[in-house]
Write a protein that binds this DNA or RNA. Structure first.
Length: 964
RNA sequence: GCCGCUGUGGUGAAAUUGGUAUACACGCAAGACUUAAAAUCUUGUGCUCUCAAAAAGCGUGUGGGUUCGACCCCCGCCAGCGGCACCA
């Protein structure tokens, strides 16, 4: 049977000719003019002036009417008049509500209105979305009638793909089908659906491929996106191609660059020497994503670090906002948690320790640390600073002379305190050696060797402010320069790492928390914050740690030695990439003015088309070799200057793409306020788990930044209302699909073999949308069988239009409700199961079915199987099924005439009772009936019934005393 | 180590959120059609006991608890998956 191919071709052709089917219409313009000399303007509330689902005004119509001096009367049936009034400002508005009959489609309504406000029919205009209402207004003689409908929007977004050379993979097909089903469902429900698609096309694979094939990345991208687009069309994704965006399009990245300039202007982008991952074999800087297990993703060489001056974006300024904003979203807990963890806020204190070596310093100098445990300050017996700490370079140049010996030679055996003289030079070399070796270590080594602590004594001492004890300052690479202040106070008794370090180098361990149970402080640190009592800390002894924490912070703040503060796991965002295929960073380095942003009117800074894209040996971007690009004038002083040659990371273009879909062709602004107000926020954002942290966080950050600038609407604090993360499709062998394993399923191949509808539907039927599942062709055949049977059933029953039996009505209406509810909550697998069940029932029982009910069946299937349903629907209707109305269940068929009540004894089901549903509240009668059942009688026998429980409409439970 | 998730038939999985556990589908078995196979259709299918049926008992990783009643709620353990990880 190759029928499906013909059907697919036929309807693909049809959809191609009717692209507007899937176009999202912007909130419709007001194309009428209402005279300003009337007595009143009557305006309908529902679906016209007010969106009652969200309790929001239709700004467009509201503004238009506000500009007219005529008094306005809002006519509505709602009982919440006060809430409607709250939405309307100014004295030109009144609300008229009749919550009981007559309704607006009865002209009596307008008679009453006319009476109340004493107007003549030619003194008013009436605006409504509904023809019936307009007609009844006309009946009483109103002539100035205007139709205006406010359609509720649904912005359904799927993550746009990176158009790789291998084409659409099964993960894309899965994700996009999930979005497409929802989009089609909502479109049929009458929503103004925006379901856009675009390309996140900058990136290394294309660059590498272009280098290898000696071609232009621009051309390669064009080919790949063309291929992706045609594959998507085959799979019948109902994207609005009118809104297609491409991150590599200069008219698009103009705005990516514009955002960067705003970041710079607000002081959120700065240049900094930062270590980057350097592959010594490829001679290239690598992004973190390209480093796998400390090795270069491509060549496998061990990655080292190199300092390069980079653009860094201060995302950390938004850390708290990014945590707090999550409250406004409807993300699943898992995603919220992941983001919170990534930001990693910890509350604690900054504390200043005075450095006591007056030989080293001739002025007072403090070492500041961050600690989450100020309650353990009395147990701080030494300090440790990172090798990259700014003080270290001073130490190498001018090492302090003191009484201790070398710590490297003697290892952990000797306390460094007061151990005799050491020459100035020796100490300097020792520190220098250690710092060098730490810096030379790869990230991998530095973390892998974590159990084995290394370090060197700095020769410095500090004064612990709580007890004025002199404690040594060490240098060790287990302290990270990038977290907190790059220096810590060490409390070896209560921190594992400090403990290991103290053990290795023979440093003092003073317990300051007494555990409730026996604890050997020579063996391990005691780290439980919640249990124990403070000791050895005179002013706070006897307190619990939490109380001591508060006390110490107060004390520190009073004495001005420290203050409460928070530290974040989140780091500032390294924004420079030394690659060709990315957005050029629109900055200019002027010898006179320093870093100056390009003038906004000169944007975009277009990526020059060049012959060679290979990275340079020195780790600079390939663009640095193109003199015509680098040479420029300073936008500020006009003098000769040099253009930045780094490009932006992949995230830059994907951070804000959802905004561009709302207004893709605007070249004056990123997107117009008006359109963002209408379309935003994204109602549902579907994407992979792998983007739940970084992409979502970066994107939310940029959005919040734009919000602060006033670029995006004020009342939309978060960009995405809901996030759905889909699962992963594994190969038939239950392994992640990969070329090397040979278990890759290509959507194009399988849909060629079984048909697009079968593949789409199977993907949705496999299991819950968010779970990980293995591809299984057997189960796919089950779906195919269903679709064949479905098709056969409809074809067999068309012809004479007969009335449906009651049984059919009940099945169909329950199905409508079930499928609608399931689609609403993305339970695609059970929605399909319900359709299978319904078809089995009506076809096995040979239920009588009307054409109308068959149409309903086809409609329910339409979001999943767009081709077959379009074909079957054409037997009944000329209109495309995909813009037909979604069926609504008739309540009267949803309640059963008869209900089954389970009878249980001591919680075990022993029988059942079938009664008319009208009797379900008659508890006494039902219990009596249950007792009379033969089976129940024998079970109860002469035992005593202790309790009788009735769950209305469900079950009866008798609790009886069992004999011993 | 930390955070999150998951555990139900031979398999993918359902269960109105505390009220008939295993819907739907796959697989398997038997049968029909066929010279035969594929396809299709029909019937059966959690386990134990039984030739079979009835009846009964046992069953949602595991041990407890709460409840008339627990896959669902609470406490403890076990196993697996994903992410992060020297973050002071």
């Amino acid at each position: 049977m190759e029928d499906f191919k013909k059907i697919e071709e036929k309807w693909q052709d049809f959809w191609k000719k009717n692209p507007s089917m899937y176009h999202a219409e912007d909130n419709s313009d007001i194309d009428f003019e209402i005279p300003n000399n009337l007595k009143f303007i009557l305006v309908d509330a529902h679906k016209c002036l007010i969106d009652f689902d969200k309790w929001k005004l239709n700004d467009k119509l509201y503004e238009y009417l506000n500009n007219l001096s005529v008094p306005k009367i809002v006519v509505t049936n709602t009982s919440k008049i006060d809430e409607v009034k709250k939405l309307l400002t100014g004295d030109k508005w009144e609300v008229f509500s009749l919550k009981d009959n007559p309704n607006k489609y009865d002209s009596k309504y307008f008679e009453l209105l006319k009476e109340k406000y004493a107007f003549k029919v030619d003194e008013v205009a009436y605006i409504d979305h509904d023809d019936k209402n307009l007609e009844s207004a006309k009946k009483i003689g109103i002539e100035k009638l205007f139709k205006y409908e406010f359609k509720n929007k649904k912005y359904i977004l799927v993550e746009f793909p990176y158009p790789s050379g291998t084409g659409l993979h099964i993960g894309h097909a899965f994700s996009f089908t999930g979005g497409d089903v929802y989009a089609r469902f909502k479109r049929m429900q009458g929503f103004n659906v925006m379901f856009p698609m675009g390309w996140d096309a900058f990136g290394l694979p294309t660059e590498n491929y272009a280098i290898k094939m000696k071609r232009k990345p621009q051309e390669v991208t064009k080919e790949n996106t063309d291929m992706f687009r045609s594959q998507m069309k085959k799979l019948a994704f109902s994207f609005d191609w009118k809104r297609e965006v491409n991150t590599t399009d200069p008219t698009y990245y103009k705005w990516t660059q514009w955002i960067f300039i705003q970041l710079f202007n607000k002081g959120l982008a700065y240049k900094k020497e930062m270590p980057i991952n350097w592959c010594p074999s490829c001679k290239i800087g690598l992004a973190n994503e390209e480093v796998v297990d400390g090795k270069c993703e491509r060549c496998g060489a061990e990655v080292s670090r190199r300092n390069i001056s980079q653009w860094v974006v201060k995302i950390t300024d938004y850390a708290d906002k990014l945590i707090d904003g999550l409250e406004e979203t409807n993300f699943i807990e898992k995603v919220k948690q992941a983001q919170i963890n990534w930001i990693g806020k910890s509350e604690g204190a900054k504390v200043k320790f005075l450095i006591s070596n007056d030989k080293f310093l001739n002025k007072k100098e403090y070492l500041e640390v961050f600690t989450t445990r100020p309650d353990t300050l009395f147990g701080a017996t030494f300090m440790v600073i990172a090798p990259e700490h700014p003080i270290v370079s001073d130490l190498i140049r001018n090492p302090p002379v003191d009484k201790s010996t070398s710590s490297l030679e003697k290892g952990g055996n000797i306390s460094p305190l007061h151990q005799g003289e050491m020459s100035k030079g020796q100490r300097g070399f020792e520190i220098e050696d250690y710092v060098k070796s730490a810096r030379g270590k790869s990230e991998l080594e530095r973390t892998e060797l974590s159990k084995n602590k290394t370090g060197v004594f700095s020769g410095l001492y500090a004064i612990n402010p709580v007890n004025n004890k002199e404690i040594p300052i060490w240098i060790s690479d287990f302290v990270l320069a990038s977290y907190g202040t790059g220096a810590i106070m060490s409390v070896p008794a209560h921190d594992e790492r400090d403990f290991e370090f103290a053990k290795k180098f023979g440093l003092e361990i003073i317990p300051v928390i007494q555990p409730k149970e026996k604890h050997d402080f020579e063996k391990e640190a005691y780290t439980d914050v919640d249990n124990g009592e403070i000791i050895n800390s005179p002013p706070i002894n006897g307190m619990v740690p939490a109380e001591a924490f508060e006390k110490m912070i107060k004390w520190l703040e009073e004495k001005k030695i420290g203050e409460a503060t928070a530290s974040y796991h989140l780091r500032d965002w390294i924004f420079s990439r030394q690659h060709y295929w990315g957005e050029p960073i629109p900055m200019v380095d002027c010898p006179k003015c320093g870093w100056v942003p390009e003038k906004e009117e000169n944007l975009p800074i277009v990526l020059p088309e060049v012959e060679a894209y290979e990275p340079t040996d020195d780790g600079l971007s390939p663009l640095s070799r193109i003199e015509s690009f680098t040479k420029c004038q300073c936008p500020k002083c006009g003098g000769d200057a040099k253009r930045e040659t780094d490009t932006m990371p992949n995230w830059a273009g994907s951070d804000w793409y959802f905004l561009r879909y709302m207004d893709p062709h605007n070249d004056a602004v990123i997107a117009s306020q008006e359109l963002m107000k209408y379309w935003g926020p994204v109602d549902v954002y579907i994407g992979g788990d792998e983007h739940n942290v970084l992409h979502l966080l970066y994107s939310r950050f940029i959005y919040k930044f734009l919000w602060d600038l006033g670029v995006v609407p004020k009342d939309q604090v978060e960009p995405y209302y809901k996030r759905i993360s889909h699962g992963v499709i594994l190969g038939p062998d239950n392994q992640r699909m990969s070329k090397s394993k040979g278990n890759v399923i290509v959507p194009e191949d399988v849909s060629e073999k079984y048909g697009v509808d079968v593949v789409r539907m199977y993907l949705m039927f496999m299991g819950p949308f968010d779970s990980t599942m293995a591809w299984n062709e057997n189960t796919l055949m089950g779906v195919k069988r269903f679709l064949d049977r479905f098709e056969k059933y409809i074809n067999l029953n068309t012809g004479n239009d007969i009335a449906s039996s009651k049984e059919t009505k009940v099945i169909i209406n329950k199905l409508i409700k079930g499928v609608t509810d399931d689609l609403e909550s993305f339970k695609y697998n059970t929605a399909i199961a319900k359709m299978m069940e319904a078809l089995n029932k009506i076809s096995n029982d040979e239920c009588l079915i009307s054409n109308e009910d068959m149409k309903t069946l086809i409609k329910l299937l339409a979001p999943f199987a767009p081709y077959i349903t379009e074909e079957l629907y054409s037997l009944f209707d000329k209109q495309s099924i995909h813009i037909a109305d979604w069926p609504v269940a008739d309540e009267k068929y949803l309640v059963d005439d008869e209900i089954k009540i389970m009878i249980s004894i001591n919680g075990k089901v022993r029988g059942e009772l079938i009664v008319a549903s009208t009797e379900q509240d008659n508890k006494d009668m039902l219990i009596q009936k249950a007792k009379e059942l033969e089976k129940i009688k024998t079970w109860i026998g002469d035992k005593k019934i202790v309790k009788e429980i009735y769950i209305p409409g469900r079950m009866i439970n008798f609790v009886i005393l069992l004999e011993q």
